[in-house]
Design a binder for these strands. Structure first.
Length: 483
RNA sequence: CGGAAUGUAGCUCAGGUGGUAGAGCGCACGGUUCGGGACCGUGAGGUCGCAGGUUCGAGUCCUGUCAUUCCGACCA
């Protein structure tokens, strides 16, 4: 059996056999999560949480760079707040958990556990904003939110999840629109350059937009099973919440005016995307920029040879550390090399370096790439530079591979029948013309369960007619089965 | 929230027609090993998801409930 084909880690269902089971298997075997004893809730275990922390750090830096500050708003939101914005309450009511009793008393007003915080920010902004001099107000919070979903899936859709939600208020529509697009850009850049996941940027159709938004913008990614995942959204809220919560400011002309607000968020859902975009039958595959451990060194050899091998391995370990590489050395002698190989592959470490007696003689080390499985000898002299170059190669190659997969699984449909065929036989993204009528959009879903993912900013084609009704198309829309 | 399936050791699972709980892997200890999940020996580990019921007796039968998975309706 060829090495590449061998099933190295038992107990992981192959992707080709059952993608959903593969996903759950990997998450559990790699110790990213475990189920908690509450419906739809998981524990995010340290390895996964560390990934989230690294995402937080990157994003937070970008938020700060663009003038935002962090704050923390309450977990509980009075029921009356929701009723102020009609569309908002209708959108979220079905999934709100309520606190009705506390301290042994029935509460006078029920408190919702926040599903998102537009209303709470709105309430506070109304008090803090008086003058045009108070604008723009640019805040973000890192928080947990709860949405009582009917159907849950680890990371992608859990009852409680972690995210950041940015909430900004601006004097003008133009400024708020700029902010909306700026943050979408920050998300897209982060996901593509840091996570090596290519995205499609676009606008949500009215039926898919955030409850209470004027417009919702999104980045969409393609999972390995051909389903789409919304990885972040940015909302232009216009004056909807400003009017519901009386967020007004006195302008230079001494006129009282409503502000324009935005909100934007990215959640721990992104961890699921990392798994589903890059993972393979051996487990996780982490892009080097994200990976907490970029290189693992495994010294090999029986007791006699071991001392010299470990010494040489340690030299390399220290040299890599000095060069700023996140490197781990596993010199445990109670675990076999083969076991270690499988373990670090399962956990997605980008590069493995093996050093054994044979390498010592040749003054070299064996390198193994996690993304391609390639194995090759590298002279110890210059190994540090080679690692650095390889890390950026892997980062680029992983993105390119995912990008290629996205392109190969993106098609254009001229008719509803063709769209349905593509979705049913190939999955992936299918571009089609749309007249703008919600019924036509709905017809696609009824025909094949694919939903409109977005109206892309840069469509690869411009269909002239609506895929459902045949009238002139107003937009090109990406349809896909989605998570 | 509807339909289907599953729930026995940390993991994968076995336990006809009811009779008091097993294997492999993992774990602990000792020894031998080390280039793709090494081997030998000894040992620890179980309210059989939970709650009722039937029975002299329930992992096994009945009812309910909780959780997970898959398929639908709703969603970051």
């Amino acid at each position: 059996m060829a090495k590449q084909d061998k099933q190295f880690v038992k107990e992981i269902t192959p992707q080709s056999e059952d993608f959903s089971r593969w996903y759950i298997d990997v998450l559990q075997k790699a110790e990213w999560m475990d189920y908690a004893p509450v419906r739809g809730c998981i524990v995010i275990r340290p390895d996964a949480y560390e990934i989230w922390e690294r995402c937080q750090r990157e994003l937070d830096r970008e938020f700060k760079r663009t003038g935002h500050r962090n704050a923390y708003f309450p977990l509980f939101i009075p029921e009356s707040f929701f009723e102020k914005e009609k569309e908002h309450v209708e959108g979220f009511n079905p999934e709100l958990p309520w606190v009705t009793e506390a301290g042994g008393d029935i509460l006078e007003e029920r408190l919702a556990v926040r599903p998102t915080s537009e209303t709470m920010f709105g309430h506070m902004y109304a008090q803090w904003i008086q003058s045009y001099r108070d604008l723009p107000l640019l805040l973000n919070q890192w928080a947990n939110v709860v949405r009582w979903e009917k159907r849950t899936l680890p990371f992608l859709r859990t009852s409680e999840f972690l995210w950041q939600e940015g909430h900004t208020a601006h004097a003008t529509e133009e400024e708020a629109r700029e902010e909306t697009m700026r943050m979408l850009g920050i998300y897209a850049d982060f996901v593509e350059s840091f996570l090596a996941i290519p995205v499609i940027r676009g606008q949500k159709t009215p039926s898919e937009k955030f409850a209470g938004a004027v417009e919702t913008y999104t980045i969409e990614s393609l999972m390995k099973d051909g389903r789409a995942l919304q990885t972040a959204t940015s909302h232009y809220l216009g004056q909807n919440f400003a009017k519901s919560f009386e967020i007004q400011y006195l302008d230079r002309d001494n006129q009282l005016k409503y502000v324009y607000t935005t909100s934007w968020g990215m959640s721990t859902r992104i961890l699921g995307a990392i798994v589903m975009v890059h993972g393979d039958d051996r487990g996780l595959v982490l892009p080097p920029k994200l990976a907490p451990t970029q290189v693992v060194i495994v010294p090999i050899g029986p007791a006699k040879a071991r001392e010299a091998v470990v010494a040489k391995a340690r030299d390399l370990f220290e040299a890599l550390q000095r060069a700023g590489v996140r490197v781990h050395m596993d010199d445990r002698d109670d675990v076999s090399p083969g076991w270690k190989f499988n373990e670090y592959e399962l956990r997605g470490v980008p590069i493995r370096i093996e050093i054994g007696p044979r390498d010592l003689e040749a003054s070299q080390a064996m390198f193994a790439r996690r993304d391609t499985g390639e194995k090759f000898a590298v002279p110890l002299d210059g190994a540090v530079e080679r690692v650095q170059a390889l890390l950026s190669d892997i980062q680029r190659d992983m993105f390119d591979a995912a990008k290629r997969r996205l392109e190969e699984n993106s098609h254009v449909a001229e008719s509803l029948q063709q769209l349905v065929d593509l979705i049913q036989t190939k999955r992936g993204f299918v571009l089609a013309g749309w007249c703008g009528d919600e019924a036509c959009e709905r017809a696609v879903k009824d025909a094949c369960t694919a939903t409109s993912r977005c109206i892309p900013f840069h469509p690869p084609a411009h269909p002239e007619t609506c895929v459902t009704c045949g009238k002139p198309a107003k937009h090109a829309v990406w349809f896909a089965k989605s998570y």
